[in-house]
């Protein structure tokens, strides 16, 4: 009897453990320079494509539909304000043409943070 009881308890414990252990582990990127990563996302046509509208740093053939991205730390002393702007610029200006990168899942949270950090380095 005792053995049967122990076996049952063990099974119960194993099941509850398997239920708890379903969260995936956060993966950390091996690439060293986050600013380079942010720049790559901002310039890539199929990802951020910021150059379509904005002049940025040494980006080739930038558009002029949006303002040049210069002195971003002066213009956005509060990082969260800039992040919110990239997330959904229509909150501050309903008429803006800028795509809502976060709200519409064009970039994921990690990409968004990398881009914001890169922009603040300009």
């Amino acid at each position: 009897m005792k053995i049967a009881f122990t076996v049952l308890l063990t099974i119960a414990a194993m099941i509850s453990y398997s239920v708890m252990a379903e969260e995936p582990l956060e993966q950390t990127s091996p690439i060293a320079n986050p600013l380079e990563q942010g720049k790559a996302i901002a310039f890539d046509r199929s990802v951020g494509n910021c150059l379509a509208c904005h002049m940025i740093d040494d980006g080739e053939l930038p558009g002029n539909s949006g303002p040049p991205l210069l002195q971003m730390k002066l213009r956005f002393p509060d990082r969260e304000v800039l992040r919110a702007q990239v997330w959904d610029a229509t909150v501050r200006n309903p008429n803006t043409v800028m795509p809502p990168y976060g709200k519409h899942k064009i970039l994921n949270d990690k990409e968004l943070d990398l881009v914001v950090d890169y922009l603040l380095s300009l």
Partner: peptide, 13 residues
């Protein structure tokens, strides 16, 4: 968005 608001501006080149 592009052809009223941004008409005349550039997207890339």
């Amino acid at each position: 968005s592009c052809h009223v608001q941004l008409a005349g501006k550039r997207l890339r080149s």
